[in-house]
Deep mutational scan, measured.
Amino acid sequence: SGVNQQQLQQLMDMGFTREHAMEALLNTSTMEQATEYLLTHP
């Protein structure tokens, strides 16, 4: 699906929903950016 499943699982383990985590990974290129994205786009 174009996203790193390991990163997706890590974000879900942090408490984010699958949909939200996927959106973040699709819009960013690193785990750090994805986390930042999730925190700034709740």
Results as ranks from 00 to 15, higher is better:
Ser1Arg: 12
Gly2Asp: 10
Gly2Arg: 12
Gly2Gln: 12
Gly2Ser: 13
Val3Gly: 06
Asn4Pro: 08
Gln5Arg: 11
Gln5Thr: 10
Gln6Pro: 06
Gln6Glu: 13
Gln7Met: 13
Leu8Gly: 00
Leu8Asp: 00
Leu8Lys: 01
Gln9Trp: 06
Gln9Pro: 01
Gln10Lys: 10
Gln10Thr: 14
Leu11Tyr: 01
Leu11Val: 03
Leu11Thr: 00
Leu11Phe: 05
Leu11Ser: 00
Met12His: 03
Met12Trp: 01
Asp13Phe: 06
Asp13Leu: 08
Asp13Thr: 06
Met14Val: 04
Met14Leu: 10
Met14Asp: 04
Met14Thr: 04
Met14Lys: 05
Gly15Asn: 04
Gly15Thr: 01
Phe16Ile: 04
Thr17His: 12
Thr17Pro: 15
Thr17Asn: 14
Arg18Ser: 06
Arg18Leu: 08
Glu19Ile: 09
Glu19Met: 11
His20Gly: 05
His20Trp: 11
Ala21Leu: 02
Ala21Ile: 09
Ala21Met: 01
Ala21Ser: 12
Met22Gln: 08
Glu23Cys: 11
Glu23Asp: 07
Glu23Ile: 10
Ala24Lys: 00
Ala24Tyr: 01
Leu25Ile: 07
Leu25Phe: 04
Leu25Pro: 00
Leu26Trp: 05
Asn27Thr: 06
Asn27Val: 09
Asn27Gln: 07
Thr28Ile: 02
Thr28Asp: 01
Ser29Glu: 14
Thr30Lys: 02
Thr30Ile: 01
Thr30Asp: 07
Met31Leu: 14
Met31Thr: 03
Met31Lys: 03
Met31Ser: 02
Glu32Tyr: 04
Glu32Lys: 07
Ala34Met: 01
Ala34Ser: 01
Ala34His: 01
Ala34Tyr: 02
Ala34Pro: 00
Ala34Trp: 02
Thr35Asn: 05
Thr35Asp: 03
Glu36Tyr: 05
Glu36Trp: 05
Tyr37Glu: 14
Tyr37Met: 05
Tyr37Pro: 09
Leu38Ile: 05
Leu38Asn: 02
Leu38Tyr: 03
Leu39Asp: 15
Leu39Val: 09
Thr40Pro: 03
Thr40His: 12
Thr40Val: 06
His41Gln: 09
Pro42Ile: 15
